[in-house]
Amino acid sequence: MDHVIEIDGLSKEYETGFWRKRRTLALDGLTLSVRPGQIFGFLGGNGAGKTTTIKTLMRLQFPTGGSARILGRDISDIETHRRIGYSPENPYFYDYLTASELMDYFGRLFGIDPDTRRRRADELLTAVGIEDKDRRRQLRKFSKGMLQRVSLAQALINEPELVFLDEPMSGLDPVGRREIRELIAGLRDRGVTVFMSTHILSDIEALCDEVAILRAGRLAASGTLSDLLEDSGDARSLEIIVRGVEADEIRERVELVAGATLAAKPNGVSVIVLDETDIDAVLQIARESGGRLASISPVKQSLEELFVRQTE
């Protein structure tokens, strides 16, 4: 099997309103494939259709067009659910159960024997940082971040090959985010494929191998993170930082250099040139006005810029 997820022209139109029907096209012919053994980042702004995609794959909703396969089988075949895990967006569980009871209940739905259930529940709750004393409390007393952790633990109760995580970092504090990040990275190390929707860019930079960017229910961009950043950036641009001069003193002359842009920054005057052959000219101008070189570095488009560009 080349791909663990194959989405082919998937569409979803919502009808809202009882008397006067209004239609929202949440997914508009999405086509996407995910190779095994990686952390795949599913990006997009609010309302781009990430949750809709995942819910459709989980068979919580029915597509209005197209098809999709998980682990080689059509999504209508829920037998595949034995081999996958899912953590919903803003997870919510039976609030009258304790964390341990929830894990046990879900383990039973998979037909896992009692001893294995108990052992895995303990291991997983430990891994997501739910302490012993909290495991015997009802979930109605859990904070959003704690529910998020429980959600991740329950998604792994059946030792899945593939997990779908919808905004797994939301509601977590910075320490929690780092812990969960490490946990997700650990999954990949064990060969689990992770399909993760998020809009927290630092998590994507830290975790994801490949990403897809969704915009208005369509694929806006996809590929490895480094390819995407290079592709759309001006790969050979360089930033020169000079100190000891005011930006305005050299602005006129610098801007005569083709394509150069200049800006005052806290750490000095920043000049961006399109090619390294322009460095000398800029340095010459700066020195003549009493400035000195502080640094030269290649300009990489940040993920944030890419994201903003692709989702606007």
Binding site: M58, L60, H81, I84, F93, F106, Q154, F164
Partner: peptide, 14 residues
């Protein structure tokens, strides 16, 4: 309404 079904139907439950 409370979305507790989400995690149920992602399991092999019809």
């Amino acid at each position: 309404e409370k979305r507790t079904v989400f995690s149920i139907f992602a399991k092999p439950v019809g």
